[in-house]
Amino acid sequence: MTEAHDAAGHGPNINAYLIVGGALSVFTALSFGFNYLAHHDKMSVFSAFVAILAVAIIKATLVGTYFMHLKYDWRLTYFMLIPAFILGTMMMIVLLPDIVFAW
C-alpha cells in the first residue's frame, strides 16, 4: 500500500521535469563556457573553478530535489543523507594533511 502511494501519489508534474531537464542542459553549457573563458584569459582560473563548482552543486541539487523526489521525501530520508554528507566532508578534511607539495 505504501509503495503504490509512493509511486503515484506524489512528485512533480511533467512540466517541472522538463523545465529542470532544460535547466540542467543550460548549466552544463554554462560550465563549459566558464572553462572557455578561463582558457582564453578572460576570467581568472580560480573564479572559473569556483563558478564551475557552484554550477555542479546547483545541478546536483536540481537532480536530487526534483528527479530523485527529495523535495517530497526529504523528511523521510534526511537521517541517511545528512550523516553521509558529514562523513564525506570529514573524509575530504582528513585527506588534507596528505597534500604534500611535489615541486
Partner: peptide
C-alpha cells in the same frame, strides 16, 4: 522504476562532479 531511477540519477550526479574535475580547468 522509481528505485531504478534513483540509482540512475545518482550515477548522473557522480558524473556531474567528475566532468568538471577531469575535463575542465
Amino acid at each position: 522504476l522509481e528505485y531504478t531511477g534513483l540509482y540512475w540519477h545518482f550515477v548522473d550526479i557522480v558524473w556531474i562532479f567528475l566532468f568538471p574535475l577531469i575535463y575542465l580547468i
